[in-house]
Design a protein around this nucleic acid. Structure first.
Length: 276
DNA sequence: ATATTCCCCTGGAAGC
DNA sequence: TGCTTCCAGGGGAATA
């Protein structure tokens, strides 16, 4: 579900809600795609104080004061709810953490594609196997037209697939890959290595602006995504091609097409994004 | 090494 | 109304 703007939005809320809190108890269901045994989770977390909640790629990092932490991924349908402790488990609840102030932090996930991992070493060093091979953060200076150009020289893969490969650049999923390619006027099936420096610059810039605008809107809610307080993201109204097959292109009026790429739907305007 | 495919899982929408 | 099929924001393992 969530891509970088959604994870960023949730990360900020969680940091505000959880920073400084001590976890007194924890339990997991064992049903997530990657999960932790409930006994181990309880043993690992109990008594630890949360110093911050940060993000790396689409992973949320719960950083404890002893520098260890939890690595969480929301998969397609994961979300968090914080409630008083006097309630039953919520529907789809997969893990929960009891806080010293009496609140209960719950990790819910309808489809169980999310993940929950323990990180014993310094979590912010990102040496954990889950974090070590991740690519560039798209909103840093390190990701730009020239680095994208350099990294994609040997890749015959379609540029949309390349953008979504977290070993190259992180945080870009299906929605924002489609939107960035539309803004840059690049056909999603273009082999990545065929993009010249100029078009890499345009695409990198488009990735940055679409992500920044989506963060400012609180993310994109299609169906399941919600912030920790239950609020929806407002960027769905700004989507220009995603989910709009058959509708007119907002720029030129041509009919937006849908193409299947490795099982994922690509949406594009055949006139604004010509195959070259 | 790189590029597809298949799978994990559940629910909502669309088709018959 | 009810059953069936398709589709979904992700990621990783298996396969060519």
């Amino acid at each position: 579900m969530p891509e970088l703007p959604e994870v960023t939005t949730i990360c900020r809320s969680l940091d505000r809600q959880l920073r400084g809190q001590v976890i007194t108890a924890a339990a997991s269901s064992g049903r997530l795609r990657v999960d932790v045994d409930s006994v181990h989770l309880q043993h690992f977390c109990a008594g630890k104080c949360i110093s911050a909640v940060t993000r790396r790629a689409k992973y949320l990092l719960v950083v404890f004061t002893d520098r260890s932490g939890l690595i969480l991924h929301l998969g397609m349908t994961g979300y968090f709810v914080i409630t008083p402790d006097d309630q039953q488990a919520l529907p789809y609840e997969r893990a929960h953490f009891l806080l010293a102030d009496g609140r209960r932090w719950r990790f819910c996930d309808i489809r169980c594609f999310g993940s929950l991992q323990l990180c014993h070493e310094d979590i912010q060093s990102c040496t954990h196997p889950t974090l070590v091979n991740l690519g560039l953060e798209p909103l840093t200076k390190a990701f730009n037209g020239s680095s994208m150009h350099r990294l994609s020289r040997n890749s015959r893969t379609p540029v949309k697939t390349w953008l979504m490969d977290q070993r190259n650049v992180v945080g870009v999923g299906n929605i924002y890959a489609n939107e960035a390619l539309f803004r840059a006027g690049i056909h999603p099936a273009t082999p990545a290595r065929r993009l010249g420096l100029q078009r890499c610059r345009q695409l990198a810039a488009a990735v940055k602006t679409v992500l920044q605008e989506a963060i400012a809107a609180g993310g994109t809610t299609i169906s399941d995504y919600r912030d920790v307080d239950g609020s929806e993201g407002h960027f769905s109204t700004a989507l220009e091609v995603y989910g709009r097959a058959g509708e007119p292109c907002p720029h030129c009026g041509a009919t937006i097409e849908r193409l299947l790429q490795g099982g994922r739907a690509a949406f594009f305007c055949p006139r604004c994004q010509p195959q070259r």
